[in-house]
Design a protein around this nucleic acid. Structure first.
Lengths: 258, 258
DNA sequence: TCCCGTTTTCCACATTGTGAAAAACCTTTT
DNA sequence: AAAAGGTTTTTCACAATGTGGAAAACGGGA
């Protein structure tokens, strides 16, 4: 008769109540909840009380309506917190590596530096030069520029002011005019380009990834020898990177740019 | 022996497990959970399974670790949805973050606790210590004090009476005299200050946001290392936070204080 | 291969959750 | 002002349900 696969009855019922509560924006009454879940009113009441004791449900005495409680919010946000983008990003990076046959990277902006968090290496003989964990000045990095391009010009100027524009190669951007010109291009193209600005001989195509809060949290890029990442391939790869970035954005619960 | 006031045992235990899971960023094993909650392993396992069936917990077979599940996230965000000032607040938080270069927060008062609803992080190395969803005793929080300062002294006393004054650091307010003194200052200044009263080394400047009904519904704050939020900057930041709070108030259809 | 530390399943037992019904509240109606 | 109709709470006897010890199934190391 009893099927253990159903789990613990009372817990299961309590969770159903919570889900029902979450469905409603302006609260529900005990009797409504009892009806919609098929529970006895007294049972629903008892379970709700328990949920309330733990802060998962909330009762408004004035209106006698039940709501989802703060503790549910607290526990739920732990789900989002755990999302360090590395794990979900991997499949997209791999696919990107496979379609481009070049190294794919994931990076975040941290204290004026772009940090490469994760990397899926090209299978070609010549590998990328930068390592995961490696840091690059923002404006010498494709990923850095992709993220920064989403900011206001003022914010960009402020960052450049603080971080400076340390040149890494002869092609590095050396003044604000060059920076804004490059950012302008980045916004138009929909992807950022590092054309041997970090390491001579190395090119890098990048696009930013958006958080649910509507901010560019990290970026995806493809990097390889300038000899292989020819001008002719740039737009194709740009579109592929853009696509991967948008897909990851969706995966993370964000909204890609129009 | 049995006290019905304790609520439904199994539900209560399951919720405790969830809270425990939320505390950990990289997952917990059944046996760890059993130990930390004082449950028999088999019981913990059974409850977790039930949580998993509803999507509130998530099990990683590879690592045999348990995490908070997507459904907990879904239900939790219903809490945020009901307090729908999150979306309209974001632009103001971002601007505040940009002008102060510190983390900007949005919080509401809920059952004697201040809950951080949303957050726009500083771009500096040291990020905020508190997470969205985090809860702080009212009188240890800048945002809490900003809201409460709009109340009558009687109401404040009543709340303190109920909630107590649990000290979080050595600088926390420990008696009603200190509270009223601080509230007095808050009203004069036009902004509230949490000077390492919640976390040592962390300062926080806050101002309340008004509803069209003329009540302080939520608060905006800027938080950062005490080393960076120096006394010299306090009044400037206070004015900036006040301004952001007033702008959001207008946006929500309320009337800012004179 | 065997072993140790897990996770998972099983099962007899009584603790614990259950729901009908009654009590306590509210508004609204007469 | 009292009665009626809708709630939300509380109570309580009963047995269905959840419990935890112990045993079984894994899953990596030696």
């Amino acid at each position: 008769m009893k099927n253990p696969k159903d789990g613990v009855q009372s817990v299961s019922r309590a969770l159903t109540l919570l889900q029902e509560l979450a469905r409603s924006d302006d609260g529900l009454r005990v009797s409504d909840l009892a009806r919609s879940t098929g529970l006895a009113v007294s049972t629903a009441h008892r379970l709700l009380t328990t949920l309330e004791q733990h802060g998962f449900a909330q009762f408004e005495p004035e209106t006698t309506l039940w709501h989802v409680g703060r503790e549910a919010f607290a526990v739920g946000s732990a789900f989002g917190r755990r999302r360090n983008f590395v794990a979900p990003a991997l499949p997209f990076l791999k696919r990107l590596r496979d379609v481009t046959r070049e190294t794919a990277n994931l990076g975040i902006l941290d204290d004026k530096q772009l940090v490469t968090i994760s990397q899926v290496e090209s299978r070609e003989i010549m590998r990328a030069i930068s390592n995961p964990g490696g840091q690059v000045p923002v404006f010498c990095s494709g990923m850095g520029k992709a993220i920064v391009a989403t900011w206001s010009d003022d914010a960009i100027a402020a960052l450049a002011d603080q971080a400076g524009l340390p040149p890494m190669t002869t092609k590095s951007l050396r003044n604000m005019d060059a920076v804004f010109e490059d950012i302008q291009l980045t916004r138009q193209r929909g992807y950022a380009l590092d054309d041997e600005e970090h390491v001579t001989g190395l090119r890098c195509v990048a696009a930013e990834v958006w958080s649910p809060q509507g901010e560019a949290v990290c970026a995806i890029s493809v990097s390889g020898l300038a000899a292989r990442l020819t001008d002719a391939r740039l737009d194709t790869i740009g579109a592929q990177v853009r696509k991967a970035a948008n897909e990851l954005t969706l995966r993370l619960g964000g909204t890609p740019p129009v």
